[in-house]
């Protein structure tokens, strides 16, 4: 019991990390796009839980709303709009699949080599920075909003214009010519 209390957050990390990886493998291996979408949703939710463990509460909610809500509904609508019965693929993977797997294994080997030889520093956790504004303790959402609207106002406005452009582009692409 004491072990659970002491290492609860670490155990949760492993649970959600394994969940996210398993769901991600499901996304790229399952045959039916609908199952892929559900698997992707599980992956997004696991990643949102990982955000919670790293004191990014606001971002975890944004992840659930935007990915789990918006993007997932978009995917499901498109999957329902295309005729799945005509998509019966003989094989899920294309001709480049072996090369892709080799590339990914090399990438993972390289990265693991770097991390295993990397002198691990103790985590300088300062969670106070995520919930405070000018020394005053508030919530994570307020701290994020404070940084976003004070220090990153111009990128924020550019992002809104970008979303408008993307929306117009999607409408133009999607209409019947």
């Amino acid at each position: 019991m004491e072990f659970l209390v002491q290492h609860g957050a670490d155990l949760l990390f492993y649970v959600f990390a394994v969940g996210a990886l398993a769901a991600a493998v499901g996304v790229i291996t399952l045959r039916n796009p609908m199952y892929c979408a559900i698997s992707l949703l599980v992956c997004f939710l696991c990643v949102a839980a990982l955000f919670l463990l790293r004191h990014a509460e606001f971002l975890a909610l944004v992840q659930v709303f935007v990915y789990g809500g918006g993007i997932m509904v978009l995917f499901l609508f498109v999957i329902m709009l295309v005729n799945l019965h005509r998509l019966r693929e003989s094989s899920v993977f294309g001709e480049y699949a072996p090369m892709a797997v080799v590339l990914a294994v090399l990438l993972v080997a390289l990265v693991l080599f770097v991390f295993l030889n990397y002198d691990q520093q103790a985590v300088a956790a300062a969670p106070g920075a995520f919930v405070s504004v000018e020394g005053q303790v508030v919530g994570n959402s307020e701290a994020v909003a404070w940084t976003l609207y004070r220090d990153y106002l111009l990128p924020f406005e550019i992002a809104s214009v970008f979303l408008l452009v993307a929306m117009v582009g999607a409408v133009v692409l999607g209409r019947k010519s």
């Binding site: 996210a20 990886l21 790229i28 796009p33 892929c36 294309g94 892709a100 990438l107 990265v111």
Partner: peptide
């Protein structure tokens, strides 16, 4: 970081290997 790289590698395999544009 290791988890993130593993997810990245899985995503790259999906991008290169799948034939269906949705996936």
């Amino acid at each position: 970081l290791v988890l993130s790289f593993l997810l990245f590698a899985i995503g790259v395999v999906g991008i290169l290997a799948r034939r269906n544009m949705i996936t």
